[in-house]
């Protein structure tokens, strides 16, 4: 951990590298990161509000709260899947703390989320009846926990991908399934009671519901959500860190 801190500069440079590579030579550059959530939201508004007649109040803000943070989670996970294998050239030829790779992938996703937030936050205030208040600051502790949760999973998937390249496809399917098992486009209360257990057991439900509580209802997230989020963070970091540190010495040989 100490070593990782000493390598802050490396993590920072990895993030800058990825951002530069992503946006260099593209005409719309950073706009692409905004277009994705915009199109998702437009699609879901048409599908659920106008076709399925979903009754949620302030449905667009509801979607925005869910989609932005789900996308952050999905982005973290897919970016860390290839974090080690895509940098095979470095791993095989230079010695450095390999933790920097998945951490770099997570922070790369976080930076993009923060860019998107900077644009969507004023939009939500002006057009979507987001109420300004100190309670909105609760977003940051939730975000902090979500990043820790993603770091644990990121360590895990980046390790598994070294040994099984299938992990990439598995993560894609897992994310698609996870999206529909999380109340992003529908409200938890609209789910039939029989099916609720599935959705309630999903840790992302606690994260997304907490954001929704803060952003839509100006409420502090319920203690139950905090408890579940902390548990998820603890388990994910434990498994992720153990897996990564157990197998990282074999990375240079396996990839």
């Amino acid at each position: 951990m100490k070593q990782v801190l000493a390598y802050r500069q490396l993590i920072k440079n990895l993030v800058i590298k990825d951002l530069k590579l992503k946006y260099r030579d593209s005409v719309f550059g950073f706009l692409w990161s905004l277009l994705n959530p915009v199109f998702m939201i437009v699609t879901y508004v048409i599908a659920f509000k106008y076709i399925m007649k979903a009754s949620a109040p302030n449905y667009v803000l509801f979607l925005l709260a869910g989609v932005l943070h789900w996308n952050l989670f999905a982005q973290c996970l897919s970016a860390s899947t290839g974090a080690v294998v895509d940098n095979a050239g470095l791993v095989k030829k230079v010695y450095f703390p390999l933790e920097a790779l998945p951490l770099g992938a997570i922070f790369f996703s976080l930076v993009q989320y923060l860019f998107a937030l900077a644009v969507f936050f004023p939009v939500a205030l002006i057009f979507l009846h987001l109420r300004l208040g100190w309670v909105l600051l609760w977003v940051f502790p939730i975000l902090f926990l979500q990043i820790l949760f993603s770091i644990g999973l990121g360590f895990l998937v980046s390790t598994v991908t070294v040994f099984y390249r299938d992990a990439k496809h598995f993560v894609e399917i897992f994310l698609m399934l996870g999206f529909w098992l999380t109340p992003v486009v529908y409200q938890f209360t609209d789910v039939p009671v029989k099916a609720r257990a599935w959705i309630a057991d999903n840790p992302m439900t606690d994260f997304i519901s907490s954001y929704q509580a803060v952003l839509l209802h100006n409420q502090t997230p319920a203690p139950l959500f905090w408890r579940n989020m902390l548990t998820a963070v603890f388990i994910s970091l434990l498994i992720g860190a153990l897996t990564f540190s157990r197998f990282k010495t074999r990375f240079a040989e396996e990839i």
Partner: peptide
């Protein structure tokens, strides 16, 4: 710059 940071600079 990236290369040097690999060595912890």
């Amino acid at each position: 710059y990236l290369n040097a940071s690999l060595y912890g600079m």
